[in-house]
């Protein structure tokens, strides 16, 4: 899976959680939760969905690395590629 495929997956999963928003408009360093108005329950669902889709585990201490598109991409790249 390359970088743009990972990005597409992120967008797709965010769209499921915030269907009325367009996650492709997110800035690289924008806080995803704040921008898309995602609460802590949905944030956990997003992480669950990422783990299931990408077949990885994101331990709780790494949740901080999922805050922006940039940090999340860097983190996932290391995990997958």
């Amino acid at each position: 899976m390359n970088k743009s495929e990972i990005l597409n997956t992120i967008h797709e999963l965010l769209k499921n959680i915030a269907p009325e928003m367009d996650p492709t408009l997110l800035g690289q360093e924008e806080n995803i939760r704040e921008a898309l108005n995602i609460d802590s329950y949905d944030a956990l669902q997003f992480i669950v969905a990422l783990c299931e889709k990408l077949k990885i585990d994101i331990p709780e201490q790494d949740y901080g690395k999922t805050a922006t598109i940039k940090s999340l991409l860097t983190y996932l790249e290391k995990k997958i590629i």
Partner: peptide, 23 residues
């Protein structure tokens, strides 16, 4: 009313973009 809440990406999200984003 959405642009106030979800300032996704650009500062000025136009109505057209928002309409597209809404199912």
């Amino acid at each position: 009313g959405e642009p106030e809440k979800g300032k996704a990406g650009t500062e000025q999200v136009g109505m057209e973009q928002l309409k597209e984003a809404v199912p």
